[in-house]
Write a protein that binds this DNA or RNA. Sequence first.
DNA 1: ATCTATGGCGAGTAAT
DNA 2: ATTACTCGCCAT
Length: 835
Amino acid sequence: MSGDEVRGWLLDADYVTRGGRAVIRLWVKTESGVVRVFDDSFEPYFYCLLSGGVEDAVEALEALDLRGLEGVERKLLGSPVEMVRAVVHHPQDVPELRGRARALDSVEGVREAHVPFAIRYVIDRGLVPVGLHSFDVEERGGEFFLSDSEALETEELPELSVLAFDCEMLSDGSAPDPGKDEVVVISAATAEGTELFTAEEGEDGMIQSFLEFLDGVDPDVVVTYNGDDFDWPYLRDRAEVHDVDLDVGRDGSTPVFRDGARGNVDVRGRLNVDLYRVAERDVGGLRTKSLEDVAEHLGVVDRVDRASIDSLDVRSYWEDDGRRGELLRYAEHDAESTFGIATELLPLQLQLSRLVHRFPDDVSKMGRGRQVEWFLVSEAHEAGEVVPEPSPSEDSYAGGLVLEPKKGLHDDVVCLDFSSMYPSIMIAYNISPDTLVEGKEARELEEEEFFQAPEVEHRFRREPDGFFKRVLVELIEERRRAKAQRDAVLRGGERDGEQLRGEARLTDLRQRTLKVLANSFYGYTGWPAAAWYRQECAEATAAWGRHLIQEAVEEAEERGYEVLYGDTDSLFLKGVSDGEAEAFASDLTEMLPLELEVEAFYETIFFTGVKKRYAGVTRDGRMDVKGLEVQRGDWCDLAKEIQSRVLHMLLEGRDPEGAAELVRGTVEDLRAGNVDLEKLVIRKTLTKGFGRYKSVQAHVEAAKRLAAWGRDVSPGEKVEFVVIRGGGRLSDRSYPVEMFEEYVDGHLVTDRTASKKRVLEQSFRRKAVNRAGSSGSGARTGPEGEACDSRKYELDVGYYVEKQVVPAASRILNHFGFSDGYLMGQPRQATFEAF
DNA sequence: ATCTATGGCGAGTAAT
DNA sequence: ATTACTCGCCAT
Ligand SMILES: Nc1ncnc2c1ncn2[C@H]1C[C@H](O)[C@@H](COP(=O)(O)OP(=O)(O)OP(=O)(O)O)O1
Ligand SMILES: [Mg+2]
Ligand SMILES: [Mn+2]
C-alpha cells in the first residue's frame, strides 16, 4: 500500500454499489485529468427522535434491518436532545426504513433521511463542492481509496471544459414527437469551436458520432438550453429507438432521468446544467428568456441577421438541398450561443455551489428557497444541529411600510436606503429559529437577555449568536464585496466600452444574486414549506424594518427635510444640501444598528401620486424608472416607447407641452395605420391550465384561439396577442398574433393554410422558452395539409389609443393639465374637467 | 409537483 | 356608477 496525494477540484460526488454496499465516489479534477477517489468507510444514516427513552427506541428499532444504532446527542433549534442515529446498509433502503421507523411508537419522528447519500458524505466530511482539496489516498486494485481529506481555502475557480449541444428535429405540422420524428442535426460547441452531426447517413450514426465526440472531448460540464425538458429526453427516446446506449456519463453510464413537472437529468461525473433554468431565475430585465434574447442580453453573440427557423419548418429546410446549409448554420449558432451563455453564467453557479454545498448541476435547478435550505443543512451539521420539521400554518403577516408619495415634479432629491436591510436586522437582533423564545420561558427572561420586536413583540435571545446570524454575517460581507466590485468596474468607466459593459453586467448580476439570496433567508423563515419555517422570525424582521424606517423619517423631519416618499427601507428627501446628505446617512448609521447609504441624487424626480410608480434623472445623467409601464412586460411596445419619450422630455427637457404633442402625433399615426404590428403586440404569461382560471382573461382567450387553430399551448408560455375591432368584451377580441400572416391597412389576414378544426396530437412539448423566442412551433398545415379560408380582421385602433398609449402617457401628463381627451386628439377647451 | 416573503397598481369581468 | 374579485407583473 502506498500513500499518495490527489490534489484537485471536487467536481461531483456519487456512489457505486459493490457487494451490496455503497461506496462513495468523488470526481476530482487534477492537473493531469479527472481522477476518481473512492471511500468505502462511510455509511448512510438518519436520525430518530424519541418519544420516550433511548432504550425503548433502540429495542424497537432493532427489529428493523439496520446496520447499526447509536444513541447520540444533537441539537434541535439550539437545545440539546438525545436521539438515535440509525445506520442503514444501503442508501436505497432509506425510504422504506424511514417509514417503518417513523411508524414505531417509541420513535417520534425521523430526521435528515432526505439528504442524498453523496451529499451526506460531502457535508459530514467538510468537503466543498467545486472546492480545491487535498486527498490522501491509497491505491488498491488500481483504484484510489481515500484515507484523509482536507478542503483548501481558495477564492479561485477551476477551469472547466464545457460542451454545449442542441438538437434539431423533423416534425409534421406539430411539435416533434420522439416516437416518430427524427433528430436530423446535433450541433455542439466547445472552447475549440463548433461541430455538426447530421443524419444524412441515418439518425443512428449521427447519435453515435455525437456520443463519440462527447467522449473524446470528455467535458466537465455539459450545457443545454431547455435540454432537461426537451433535448435530453428526446435524445433518450431516439437513442432507444435505435438501441443505442446514451453513454454520456464519465463512467460510461446513461443519464438518470427523474420525472417531475420539470425534467431533471443527471450525468455521472459531469455537471449537466440547463442554462434556461439559470436564466429564468437569475437573469433580469428581459421580456422573454429565449436562447437568442439571453445570448444577446449577455452580449455573447453578435446579433447577426439570421432568419430563425421555426421548429416546424425544420423539415422543409432539411429536405431542400439548397436550404439545408441554412439549417446547419442555425443549429451551429444555437450551440455557440448556449456555449457563450455558459461562459458568462457558470462562474456564479460555481460560487453558489460552494456556498450552498450542493454541486452546480443541482444548484442550477434549485429555487432560491431550496438553495437557502441546503446552505442551512450544511451549516447545521457543523453546529451539531439536526434539520427540523415544523408544522406549517397558513396565515400571513405584515411586511414593509410604504409611504404615500407626494405627487409631482421635484428637484434636488436625495434617495437614502438601508444596506441589506432585512438580513442586517436579523443580524442586529439575533433573529433566528433557534433564538426565538416563547411562552413562559419568554416571560421569565430578564430584560437584558432578549431583544423584543416592536408591534409583534416576539422575543429573541441576545446570546448566543443564532444560527441565521452566523450564516448571514458572512453572506452579507460577501455581497458587500461583490457590490463594491461592481461599483469599481462602473467607476473605472469610460475606457473600452464593450468589455466594460460585459464586466459591469456580470459583477452586477453577482451582487444582485447574493443580495436576493440573503433576502431569501428572511423570506425562507416565513415560507411554510421550509424546514426552518418560523413565521415569527419573518414577522419580527419586517416589524423592525417598519420601526427603523419610521425612526429615519422622524430624524429627517426634525432636521427640516421634506419626506417625499419611502418604500420599506428607503427615503426620498427634499431640502437636503449636498454636505448634509452624507452627514444624515452617517448619523443614522451611528444611531441605528444598520447602515444607511446615500443611494442617489436626483436632479429631477417625478412621483405619479401612487406608490411604487415614479421616475427620475440622477446627477450623473441616469434615468431611473420604477413600476411604470416602461418597466412592464405586459404592455405593448408602442405604449412603453411613448411613455419613455414622455419621461425624457419631461425630466430632461422640462417640456410637458412637447410631450403632449408627441402623444397626439402618435395617436394620429396609429389611427392612420402607420405603426408596425410588432409594436402593438401585448404579451402575458399563461400561468396555469385553461380550466384553472376563475375569471375570463384576454390572454387566456387568445391562447385558446391559438390552441383551436392547431398550435400546442402550455402553461408557462407567453401569449402574444393583438386586439381586434368588434363587439363584446376585450377577451372576445384578443387574437394570437401568430394566426396572422399579413398586416395591411390596419387589417389582419389569417394564415390561409391553417385549419381551425384540426385535432392536434399531443406529444412532446417544447415549452415556453422556444416559443417565447422566435422559433414558436406554429402549425402551418393540418394533418392532411388541407387549406382553409383566410379571414380578415380589423385591428382595434381605438383600444390601442384609449387603453394603451394614452393611459401610459396620461399617468404622467395628467399632472400637467393634459386631459385624456386632449391627448387623444380632441381640442383643448372641450376637456377641461379632467384636472 | 412547485414554491423566499409582503405591498401594490391597474386592467378587466361580473355582479350590484 | 360602484364594487368585489381575479390576474399579472413589479418594488422592495
Ligand atoms: N426579493 C426579495 N425577497 C425578500 N425580501 C426582499 C426582496 N427584495 C427586497 N426585500 C426586502 C428585504 C430587503 O432588505 C428590503 C429592502 O429592499 P432593498 O433595499 O431593495 O434591498 P436590501 O436593503 O436588502 O439591499 P441593498 O443593500 O441593495 O439596499 O426589502
Ligand atoms: Mg430599498
Ligand atoms: Mn436597501
